[in-house]
């Protein structure tokens, strides 16, 4: 089981080694210690391996992840798992702004809080936040599911397209064109599945669902104030 100490090993060596792994590698479990808030740790992975990071990471940890599982025992900086395609990213602490930005697939689980713009422009990713999320989350969210066990900040889901936003706690305010929706059986099944996969201690019937009112899909002069 490889252990990489980022206190002594350059980041380039770690990422190059992870990129060199083939899909059927036997080195499937990596440990990274002393990340010291470095940026771009474990970005661009493309193999079904697990990378456990002990400590805090900076911007873009696990960016554009494919197939891999990345676990951060610490806090994550801006753009955690940005544009993730598949696989799983878990953070034991908090995540900074733009967590899961533009993600297209896979599962992002944040045990703590996520700050502003969580799930901005999400395109199919599933995000589960066990704490609360900050303002402008799910801005222009296109598809995928955002599940929040705590509260949501201001302007949730502003200019949202077809993503589903499940929130258990308070929503400070909804953004333009975002509204509460009736929960269908299908929604509930999706939510239950995500709660289970995330290991979240909550029941699907505790959540409200928010989605697009679809009034901004085609420009109309009477909606101009919303732009």
């Amino acid at each position: 089981m490889p252990v990489v100490d980022l206190g002594t090993t350059p980041l380039r060596e770690l990422n190059a080694a992870l990129h060199a792994l083939s899909k059927d590698t036997n080195e499937t479990h990596w440990h990274v210690i002393n990340p010291q808030g470095k940026h771009a740790v474990a970005v661009g992975l493309d193999a079904p391996v697990t990378v456990e990071i002990q400590g805090h990471v900076g911007y873009y940890c696990a960016g554009m992840n494919q197939h891999a599982t990345v676990i951060v025992s610490g806090n994550a900086g801006v753009g955690l798992a940005e544009n993730m395609m598949s696989g799983e990213v878990r953070v034991r602490g908090d995540a900074s702004q733009s967590a899961g930005a533009t993600g297209q697939g896979g599962l992002l689980v944040i045990d703590g809080n996520a700050s502003a713009r969580c799930g901005i422009s999400m395109k199919g990713i599933d995000i589960v936040v066990k704490g609360s999320i900050g303002p402008m989350s799910a801005f222009m969210a296109q598809t995928g599911n955002l599940v929040v066990l705590g509260d949501a900040g201001e302007a949730l889901g502003d200019s949202i397209y077809e993503a589903r936003l499940f929130v258990r706690g308070e929503v400070k305010s909804l953004g333009a064109d975002c509204e509460e929706k009736a929960v269908t059986d299908e929604d509930r099944a999706v939510l239950s599945g995500l709660l289970e996969r995330a290991g979240a201690d909550a029941r699907a019937d505790e959540f409200k669902l928010y989605g697009s009112a679809r009034t901004l899909y085609h420009f109309h002069v009477d909606n101009a104030g919303a732009y």
Binding site: S96, Q97, G153
Partner: peptide
Amino acid sequence: SEYRALAGLPGIETARVWEPEP
């Protein structure tokens, strides 16, 4: 500006850590 600037402070593990609201 980033969490790593705070990571070396005494007792940071149990501190209340948050990102200031707009």
